[in-house]
Computed example of a mutant assay.
Amino acid sequence: MLIFLVIEMLTLDLTFLMLSIGGLAGLGSDLLGAPLWLQVILAAAVAAVLLLALRPPLLKRLHRSSDSSPSNVDALLGLEGRVLATVSTFAGQVKLANGDIWTARSDGRGEIEPGTPVRVARIDGATAYVRPRPEELPE
């Protein structure tokens, strides 16, 4: 049981905790004078019931508060900004809404003049590929 608890502290997956509680049930039946075969069956049954019935909802509740907001490059996709230096398919510079200044390239829609509002289409390394915001596209 103690080994299972130590492994559980390292993995935090609740599997070994359930096995440890099953072992505790077997120990309890031993203290009550049950034969060895009954102790083993009881320990296995308690561990199986806990693994199948209690572990899934506990894991769901444990991971419910996980932050699912995008981070790193994923957080930049769709971010708006303004062109600082003319953006072409070869070079340019933009300042994004988060305050970062990025080397930028047009995503194939020609040159974008300074001051034009843009949106990040994709990131490739340290280069943001941008396009004019839809409301700013010429008709």
Score class of each variant (00 low, 15 high):
L50W: 06
L38F: 12
L54H: 08
P57G: 10
R131C: 10
V87H: 01
L32G: 07
R131F: 09
V87N: 04
L51M: 15
M1F: 09
V49H: 06
G78K: 08
V94C: 11
S20R: 03
T89I: 14
E135W: 07
T11V: 11
V130F: 06
L31R: 11
L96D: 01
V130C: 01
G99D: 05
S66N: 10
L19V: 13
A85E: 14
T116K: 09
V87E: 01
L19E: 02
N98R: 11
V6E: 07
H63M: 09
V87Q: 03
V118A: 03
T86C: 05
S66L: 15
A43K: 06
R119Q: 14
T116V: 11
A126F: 05
M9A: 15
L31A: 14
S68A: 13
S68N: 13
V73F: 08
P57K: 10
F4H: 09
D107Y: 11
A45R: 07
L19S: 04
V94D: 00
F16W: 15
L19M: 15
L32S: 09
P114S: 02
V120E: 00
G99K: 08
V40Q: 08
L52K: 13
D74N: 12
M1S: 12
A126K: 07
R109D: 07
V87F: 07
V118C: 08
V130Y: 03
L62G: 02
A45E: 12
L137Y: 02
S106E: 03
S69G: 10
D74A: 15
I112W: 00
E111R: 10
E135K: 08
L2P: 02
L19K: 05
S29N: 02
P57R: 11
A75P: 02
G26P: 04
A47M: 12
P132I: 06
M18P: 04
L14R: 02
L79G: 01
V118Y: 02
G28E: 04
G23K: 00
G110L: 12
P70Y: 06
P138H: 08
T11R: 10
L84F: 08
A75F: 07
I101Q: 05
P70W: 04
V73K: 04
T127E: 09
G23N: 01
A43Q: 07
R133N: 06
R82I: 13
R55F: 13
V46M: 14
L96Y: 08
A126R: 09
V87K: 00
I101E: 11
G81H: 06
A45N: 10
L84E: 11
T86K: 14
G26K: 02
E139Q: 14
P56D: 12
I3W: 09
L14Y: 11
V118P: 01
G115W: 04
S68G: 13
A75Q: 05
